[in-house]
Design a binder for these strands. Structure first.
Length: 664
RNA sequence: UGGCCCAUGGUGUAACUGGCAACACGUUGGUUUUUGGUACCAAAGAGUCUAGGUUCGAGCCCUAGUGGGCCAACCA
């Protein structure tokens, strides 16, 4: 029963190292610090999973801290939504805290800094300060207020706090180094005047601390041991540490900031600002629209906490920029639902089927298994009668023998019922099929290739089904410098249809999840009323049949594969091909050689020449160079000394492949 | 005229102090199946961005280059 030991990710390694360097396990503490300015999305699920996951792993407390230092953007609505989402994911936080709880402490510390000559009030316009700040490549210069006296700074800062000044007229900034190579260290702003109502402190304050001044000190106040955030905060670490140095008591825990790469999902965006834009512009119906990558959207769509947790866990933690394919997310939700979701029958695109040898007034309630993956799920009854609906795509008048569904003269099984044979079709004047006429046989033991789902017309419930496609048509919609992400909106991301479901679904409650057999997983949407059942399609079943057909009615298929991947230089590809050349079987060598010779046409001599010095032991590379050189010579390149030396050395090599290649 | 971070199959993540590059998704083929689902079996796919170095041995260490990302909000 030895639990297989999973390799540790780099953050866990850091913690293990701290532990082995004497840190007590009891001192471990983490936090998840969202700003309540929007809804959480699946990217946050990773951050949540990391910090709360560590908490579970080490049995350490994890705080939920709202980073609410900017009243202009933050609202109680978001606080509530965030709490709901974190709880739904199944995580329990130790304390619910707010950065605004620390406003007074932060203010007191700021005064200490002023007194120590490490902070000053600047009274310039933001433009003037921006100018003095320099650029990443140019150092900044000191501003005119940098050397105000402590007394003056104290006085000004107090008056800022008392509301005597207008917004924008003064700020408090740390006095660090305007020439510092890290822009963030060039006298960062600590406080600005904001005459705004704060969702928790009301009108108590009219100066608000900035992120950098707040975050590390808050971690310290909470005695967080490891403060984990995403990579774009890496440059902030230096400032985080500087601010900590000003107030730290060496007897207490000093929090460590460490950074990981944020999660990106293909075909969607992960920025609160842009998500808000989708909501505000009406492209989606709110933050919890099932097409949104928000936790609330995914929840409404039918995703389970388990699936989401599994997903971020599988995606892993590292420092490399990444774009995870949605297929992994879909795999996780299918895996979870396959085990749990009861099976039912529903027809989304109905075609009438009449069983001519079944009595008109007869009906039978047949036994159907609820879930063959779960023995405890039991059985239910489904009604059968003379007139049924089947899926339009399940019938073709004529089809090859790779088509396992119903065709004229062919036999097929009706799930949970009988075997039928299609005898004839009834069409309208335009040749559209109106009905299929079949005969049935009660002998169900026969082997047939196909099994169709169906509903009895007389008994079926008419419902609304919402099918979703990806919101964007591009794999990485917000990674194009020249185009706006809104340009890639998929106009057909929502399809609403009328469908027919078996009567057992009458009792379905909002949120219930089902597998519509052969179609996919669906859940009951919030919009459902007592009159009208509404289903969301969570995700389709894997469908290896659909893949074989040409695109047809498959808008869901991968659109195209022209990835943004930049083209590698021909010479680089040649080198790579060359490296493994000697290990290849002869047939492959010929193919690779042709490939190299093709690539060689776009290689210049200047690119090739440095490779003449390739180490003798790297034969493959030298062979590739020889091949490329051959092409260039053929195209009129004149021989020079370097070329001759290369050829000479190669000709006397012990490798025959190489020798052959320099027989120009 | 900068600083910091990153580079392993199509995607994501591994590879304990250097020792035949693994796992998952995806792809392909097969077996089972009253879901063209699930389960199971198998296969293909990278030799680790490039060059040089250290070493008996480098994805892991060193140097230089290349490519990508982040940093100039009174946002977080």
């Amino acid at each position: 029963m030895s639990e297989e030991k999973k390799p540790l990710n780099f953050i866990e390694q850091i913690i293990e190292e701290d532990l082995s360097n004497g840190m007590s396990k009891n001192d471990l503490r983490f936090r998840f610090p969202p700003e309540p300015n929007g809804y959480l999305h699946i990217g946050h699920t990773k951050a949540i999973g990391i910090s709360f996951g560590l908490g579970e792993k080490y049995n350490a407390p994890v705080n939920l801290r709202f980073d609410d230092t900017n009243p202009a953007k933050e609202e109680q609505e978001y606080v509530d939504a965030i709490k709901e989402d974190v709880a739904w994911l199944g995580y329990k936080w130790d304390k619910e805290l707010f950065s605004s709880d620390y406003f007074q402490q932060l203010y007191d510390w700021a005064i200490l800094l002023i007194k120590a000559g490490k902070a000053y009030v600047d009274s310039q316009s933001s433009e003037a300060m921006a100018e003095q700040k320099g650029t990443p490549t140019q150092p900044g210069v000191d501003g005119p207020f940098r050397n105000r006296s402590v007394a003056e700074n104290l006085d000004l800062f107090e008056r800022m706090k008392n509301g005597e000044f207008e917004e924008g007229s003064h700020i408090l900034r740390a006095k660090i180094d305007m020439q510092h190579p890290n822009m963030l260290m060039r006298d960062p702003i600590m406080y600005r005047i904001l005459k705004r109502h704060h969702h928790r402190t009301g009108n108590d304050w009219c100066i608000y601390p900035m992120y950098d001044w707040t975050h590390g000190e808050s971690d310290y106040l909470e005695q967080v041991s490891h403060s984990l955030c995403s990579l774009e905060f890496k440059p902030h670490r230096e400032l985080y540490d500087w601010f900590l140095d000003q107030v730290i008591n060496p007897d207490l825990i000093r929090p460590k900031q460490r950074e990981f790469a944020r999660l990106n999902l293909s075909y969607t965006i992960m920025s609160k600002r842009k998500l808000l834009q989708l909501v505000d512009s009406g492209i989606v119906n709110g933050w919890d629209d099932p097409r949104m990558p928000t936790i609330s959207g995914l929840r409404r769509r039918g995703y389970t906490p388990n699936a989401l947790r599994k997903f971020v866990e599988t995606a892993g933690v590292a420092k490399r920029d990444n774009v995870i394919d949605v297929s992994l997310l879909e795999f996780c939700i299918r895996e979870d639902l396959n085990k749990a979701a009861p099976r039912v029958m529903a027809v989304l695109d109905p075609l009438k089927l009449v069983i001519t040898n079944y009595p008109e007034d007869k009906e039978a309630w047949l036994e159907a298994e609820n879930n063959q993956e779960d023995a405890s799920a039991g059985f239910r009854k489904v009604p059968f009668s003379r007139e049924l609906y089947i899926e339009k795509s399940d019938f073709k008048e004529e089809a090859g023998n790779k088509f396992f569904r119903l065709k004229l003269g062919g036999e097929v099984r009706l799930k949970n019922a009988y075997i039928i044979k299609a005898e004839s079709v009834k069409k309208d004047a335009n040749g559209n099929i109106l009905e299929i006429h079949c005969t049935y046989s009660e002998d169900t033991s026969k082997k047939v290739k196909g099994t169709l789902h169906w509903v009895s017309i007389k008994h079926a419930i008419k419902v609304e089904v919402r099918e979703y496609d990806r919101l964007f048509m591009d794999e990485a919609p917000d990674s194009h410098q020249d185009k706006d992400f809104m340009d890639f909106i998929n106009p057909n991301s929502l399809k609403t249809i009328e469908a027919y479901v078996e009567p057992s679904l009458k009792e379905a409650k909002i949120g219930d999840r089902f597998q519509f057999q052969r179609l996919g997983y669906f859940n009951v949407d919030n919009d459902t009323t007592s009159e009208r059942l509404i289903f969301n399609k969570t995700v389709g079943l894997r469908d290896s049949w659909a893949k074989q057909k040409p695109a047809q009615n498959n808008p869901n298929q991968k659109q195209q594969n022209n990835k943004p991947q930049q083209k590698r230089k021909a010479i680089d590809v040649i080198q790579q091909l060359g490296k493994k050349y000697t290990n290849l079987p002869e047939i492959k060598q010929q193919k690779v050689k042709a490939e190299i010779q093709e690539l060689a046409k776009s290689v210049t001599y200047e690119e090739l020449e440095p490779l003449f010095n390739t180490a003798a032991k790297k034969v493959g590379t030298r062979i590739a160079v020889a091949m490329t050189l051959g092409v260039l010579l053929n195209n009129g390149l004149e021989r020079n000394e370097n070329i001759n030396i290369f050829i000479e050395k190669a000709s006397s090599d012990s490798n025959e492949l190489l020798i052959n290649e320099v027989k120009y």
